[in-house]
Structure formats: structure tokens, C-alpha cells
């Protein structure tokens, strides 16, 4: 096996702050991303439905 490959070991620096910081930041991003996107979609849906209700009332 290529000796250099062993040097790029992803777990070798795992205990360092740099690595655990990256893990923490990615944890936060990946947890909030789906909630944010779904929240955005639901917000868009509510906005559209309010707009629809408004248009229906204006039509009356």
C-alpha cells in the first residue's frame, strides 16, 4: 500500500480540537439544514395559502 495513503489517516488527528470542532460544526449544520428547509417550505405554503385566502375574500 502507498505509504502516503497511511499518512492521510482521517482518524489520526481525531482527538485534536480542529477535528472535533469540524465535527461539531457539521453536526449543527446538518441538523439544522433539514429543519430550516422544511420550515421554509412550510412557511412558503402558509404564505401562499394566506395569499389565496386574501384573494378569495377580495373576490367577495
Amino acid at each position: 500500500m502507498n505509504q502516503l495513503v497511511l499518512l492521510a489517516c482521517a482518524v489520526c488527528g481525531a482527538g485534536e480540537d480542529r477535528a472535533s470542532g469540524a465535527l461539531l460544526v457539521m453536526t449543527i449544520i446538518i441538523s439544522l439544514l433539514p429543519l430550516g428547509m422544511m420550515g421554509g417550505l412550510i412557511g412558503y405554503f402558509v404564505y401562499q395559502s394566506r395569499k389565496g385566502d386574501q384573494a378569495a375574500e377580495d373576490a367577495k
Binding site: 500500500m1 489517516c9 482521517a10 482518524v11 453536526t27
Partner: peptide, 13 residues
Amino acid sequence: DPNQGGDPVLWQH
């Protein structure tokens, strides 16, 4: 695979 520079705990996440 740690032998090739990978991280097995990553899969668990």
C-alpha cells in the same frame, strides 16, 4: 477504512 485514511465512526454518524 483507517488503513486507507478513512474514518469508520463517520459511517455511524
